[in-house]
Design a protein around this nucleic acid. Structure first.
Lengths: 349, 349
DNA sequence: TTGTACGCGTTATCAG
DNA sequence: CTGATAACGCGTACAA
């Protein structure tokens, strides 16, 4: 690493003033071609690039938005981030990802860091936060004076953020009604922890749907667990082994596709044939769904659209004093074979 | 957004000098407790946080490393990034992800941006770059004067980077020898484009292994295609439909697990039983491998270790004029059921 | 077309 | 313990 060359070095070596160097780098004002060329030569020779820090200090913007998400291997978050990155880029911004440990609160120091760097706005994503324990509320309050914030997670009442979320009602309704229409009567839900906001809301909605259809809302059909494939495996094992075979559900809805993957493995391991012996529906419509055996029916929450809306709203809110509002995106059921629809028969639960 | 409050505002309102405010925020020097408390109160009231830009200008560091990767849904890159992020955090750094379009060269403007922001070092990841067409070489040359660089991809001869890579020989050898030991004689490889560096090296190594074992290196057993599940599907279809059934391979090695996923779907669709009728081995040992039917045997390239080594070497290289060197990490074969090992029989090709 | 001089927000140095 | 002040690198008025 050479010791950093500054605009002064360039100016001196090219025999011009710093102002002229700026004129060349910014490409803006008129500079005599011969001068411009001479300066450019020196710039190239040194590989000189103006410092963003000095520029920002001088009034330039950081052109950066932050996104805060749980550190997770779940591709849902990759999709979310990629879409944020793309939409930001389309608007001339860079997206900076800050990760937090799953199930631990947003560190105060992280928010400080984001403020320190004078970032233009923040997106908080990750449905699994319980608002109270997550520190989200604190974070929004502290951020309030500095930059706009958007959340992509279950609706928040906090006044200092725009809140973009999936339609958690249709997210439960779609698979339940679909299974019901196929003739299923005993439907189970394996979902993340009831302690956490997103999964408990989904769980509640699930139960409401069952009741509306007059189906049994047996607590044994609702298993609390983690969020990955392994959790799905364990959940199915626990649920079925605790139940007399005649009371087994005929269909399972999983909180996400990872869990569905685990559930399928466990069901096959127990000798069941899918979807004949058990229908299953996941959530997130991940890339692997068409490749699961049987191909996995799943609810698509359209994370890419949530993400691009989030970026647009964030940038629109910038500078202006923005009003809090919620924006909801429909869910879509993508029917494949794991729910048995293609069998063309109506199961009688 | 309030108009930004500066250290001057705090100083004035607390009736002290800016120096004292710094002493309070930095927590370093001695300040009379009563003064400190008074200043802190004003700071809290305004939610004041010192600007990183001004700090950097004054000589402070950015404490940021960049990682440049292809924009991809492949979870391999998520694992890589997450590990970089964690290792960086463990060393007091933030990792900033910059994405580039798959198969397009690294934009000059991106490198400029990274220099502009005075980032402390860069990691380039993504095995699929052909060095010449990727602009990697240019990028390294331009970066040379500004910050150290580490690549995580096939070994580069470029003098201005530390190069960390997987052992591409064992990556081909492990699955080929394993299948050979199981009795397979006609082994195929479906790999990314031969145009690109990583896949062509893997392809060559694959052929060399076949020859060393005296197996047929029929060109029909080597299909060129993309990198996702869909590509895998197509590759299998093209390969098998172009081949007399008696000449079909008895085993397929896929460039990565995504392609293996697609291959498996296509093979089942053609009515084959796995692994009896066809063994298959993937690469990357992704989270879904144990949940594929049959569970997918895969080569683990240990991306997390590549990533953390990259960060450590990068930080070690910082400031010092560093020497170019290569660092190679072994691959590991994770045997599951898709290669038929558990069948305990030796197939005679 | 070009140069001079100041301000941006911080920290560090040095004097009190 | 505290305050005044000089950098830090850049862009931008304003002047020439």
């Amino acid at each position: 690493m050479d010791k950093k060359t500054t605009i002064y070095d360039i100016a001196r070596e090219a025999g011009v003033s710093t102002a002229t160097v700026t004129r060349v780098t910014a490409g803006s004002a008129k500079v005599k071609p011969s001068t411009r060329e001479r300066v450019q030569r020196v710039i190239d020779a040194h590989g000189y690039v103006p410092s963003a820090a000095a520029h920002a200090l001088e009034g330039g913007l950081s052109n950066t938005i932050a996104i805060v998400m749980p550190l997770s291997a779940n591709p849902y978050f990759t999709r979310l981030f990629n879409a944020v990155y793309e939409e930001a880029a389309a608007n001339g911004y860079y997206a900076w990802l800050f990760q937090i440990r799953e199930n631990s609160p947003i560190p105060r120091s992280l928010i400080d860091e984001i403020i320190r760097r004078r970032i233009d706005g923040v997106i908080f994503a990750g449905g699994i936060w319980s608002e109270e324990r997550s520190g989200l509320s604190d974070a929004l309050t502290r951020l309030k004076h500095h930059m706009p914030a958007v959340t992509i997670c279950p609706p928040t009442m906090h006044p200092d953020c725009i809140c973009i979320h999936s339609d958690l009602v249709s997210c439960s309704r779609l698979p339940v009604r679909h299974l019901h229409a196929l003739g299923h009567r005993r439907i189970a839900f394996i979902g993340g922890s009831l302690q956490l906001r997103d999964s408990s809301m989904r769980g509640e909605n699930f139960l409401r749907e069952l009741r509306e259809l007059g189906l049994p809302d047996d607590p044994a059909y609702h298993v609390d667990c983690g969020y990955n494939a392994e959790s799905g495996e364990g959940a199915v094992l626990r649920m079925l082994s605790g139940l007399d075979r005649r009371r087994w559900p005929t269909a399972i809805i999983a909180f996400n596709d990872l869990m569905a993957l685990g559930a399928i493995k466990q069901l096959k391991h127990m000798g069941l044939h899918l979807p004949q012996d058990m229908a299953i529906i996941g959530c997130d419509n991940q890339f692997f769904c068409p490749y699961v055996d049987p191909p996995l029916t799943s609810v698509d929450l359209h994370p890419e659209e949530l993400a691009s809306s989030a970026v647009r709203e964030l940038l629109a809110a910038k500078g202006a004093s923005y009003a809090k509002f919620n924006l909801m995106r429909d869910a879509t059921l993508i029917v494949r074979e794991s729910c048995g629809a293609s069998l063309g028969y109506r199961k009688l639960g």
